[in-house]
Simulated assay, not measured.
Amino acid sequence: MMALNRYRLRHLSNNGNRSAKRVSKLLQRPDRLIGVILIGNNLVNIAAASITTIIGTALYGAKGAIFGSILLTLVILIFSEVTPKTIAALYPEKIAFPASFILRPLLFLLIPAVWLVNGVSNGLARLIGINPQDHGNNELLRPEELRTAVDEAGDLIPDQHQGMLLNILDLEKATVEDIMVPRNEVIGLDIEEDVPTLMEQIRSSAYTRLPVYQGDINNIVGVMHLRNAAKFIYGGDETITHEAIKRFAREPYFVPESTPLHVQLLNFQKEKRRIAIAVDEYGDVQGIVTLEDLLEEIVGDFTTNLAEEAQQEISPLNDGWFAIEGGTSIRDINKQLGWELPIDGPKTLNGLILEHIESIPAGHMGFSLGRFQFETSKISNNMIEVANVRRK
């Protein structure tokens, strides 16, 4: 009874299996179930011991009682304890379901004795701070336990689906900041530029949606879907106005950069949006996050982005070294290379290096951080643009 898989039992019970329903009712009060089993078990064992003692004494005197006790112990251990319980542990459903036919009426017949025994037993348990009826939470899986269950499902779940399920569980560990496109990489339309320049950006853009801002990226006034550009692109560029571009841009959708990904996924669904502007606690724009970016955290890269293909952030070198751009996300590095760089601090490789050396180096340098070796390769005035990294 206790070795049954509770989730399989619940599944069978929900599908109308009568034996499973009967066993589920018995397991709702494990103290009563254990009580009736042990009352019957001990009654039989004590009765067998008494009968053996009487027969042994009558036949062979005191020696008969001793040898009878030894023989009975072996018989009970082999035929009543070890063998049947081993079989029951290996095939719990085959044993528990038929046994429930006997245990339910026995529980009804012995309910006064069960109440008495459980009353005393539960009272003693409460004296040491244990509530015998507080067992409901033990049947619930924690996220870490669910992850282990999925990870060890083996052939029951295909590897690709297994990875997707694990990625879903990991969504709550990451935030919008971890996957957003940083503001220095955001490509948008500055409404203060002349119309020909804006039209050239629209025609040559590799993206479907472009933020529209006025003068500064912090002053985003809308998001232009290039599908809407067809509504005002007709004739020459001289017929297009800035107001037309602003009018067909949708109102921007702002989100805090600290929003957990599983929450943001629901927010995208609720707001019927595909792109959001990530802002910090002061309201300054930090980057943009799209529904595609978020879904790729679950299913992996499933689209071809020409703009991203043109820029390879991680390039293999000799002897296990990799040339990595400073703006590359640490989570992307870990995911692509199977590394374990720390992700609880800076979000990019440049940030991780600068946090460790606490300054922007004047020249190239190398250092070790845990199991990893770093060597700067390309440095600008305000950041490390490329670094060579390898795991020891």
Rank of each mutant, 00 (worst) to 15 (best):
V255T: 08
N184D: 11
V150P: 13
E358C: 03
H262C: 01
G300Q: 14
E251H: 15
V289E: 15
E358W: 08
E152K: 14
N5A: 08
R390H: 07
L369F: 07
I379Q: 01
L141Q: 10
N350E: 05
I245L: 10
K63T: 15
I111Q: 08
Y60Q: 12
L266Q: 02
A89V: 09
Y91N: 12
I37Q: 08
N5S: 09
S100M: 11
E296T: 07
P361D: 05
D293P: 01
T175V: 12
P361I: 10
D190H: 10
L38F: 01
V386K: 15
R147G: 02
I384P: 01
T148F: 15
V263M: 07
G154L: 02
A89K: 13
I157H: 05
A3Y: 15
F367C: 01
A49K: 04
I168E: 10
G283A: 10
K246Y: 04
R227Q: 03
G370P: 09
I333P: 00
I55E: 08
T53E: 06
G154W: 12
A58E: 15
L341N: 02
I102P: 02
T208S: 05
P105V: 08
I128C: 04
T241I: 11
L77Q: 13
T290K: 13
V279K: 09
M164P: 00
M2G: 11
D216Q: 10
G338E: 03
V176Q: 04
M164D: 09
I130E: 07
R22S: 11
V82P: 00
L140R: 11
V181N: 09
G136K: 15
A47V: 09
E139I: 15
L265N: 03
I384T: 00
L90G: 00
E200R: 14
K85V: 02
A310L: 07
I343A: 01
G188Q: 05
G366Y: 12
D237K: 13
I66W: 09
T376D: 06
V75P: 08
S377K: 15
P342F: 02
H225V: 01
G370D: 05
L72D: 00
V279P: 04
I128P: 02
E172F: 06
I333T: 05
L9S: 11
V82C: 00
G338S: 06
V285T: 06
G136S: 13
G320D: 11
N131W: 05
E192G: 03
Q336S: 15
L171W: 04
D344G: 06
L189Y: 05
D344Q: 09
L166H: 02
Y207K: 02
R331K: 15
M1L: 14
Y7H: 15
I360E: 04
T259K: 14
E177D: 12
G287S: 02
G326D: 00
G222F: 05
L107N: 12
P252E: 12
T73A: 13
I275T: 02
L110Q: 00
L124F: 06
N388A: 07
P84R: 12
L77T: 01
S100D: 09
F79W: 08
L265S: 00
E325H: 04
V23G: 05
E292L: 05
E93S: 13
T290D: 06
E297N: 00
A387G: 07
V150N: 06
I240K: 10
Q269F: 03
R18L: 09
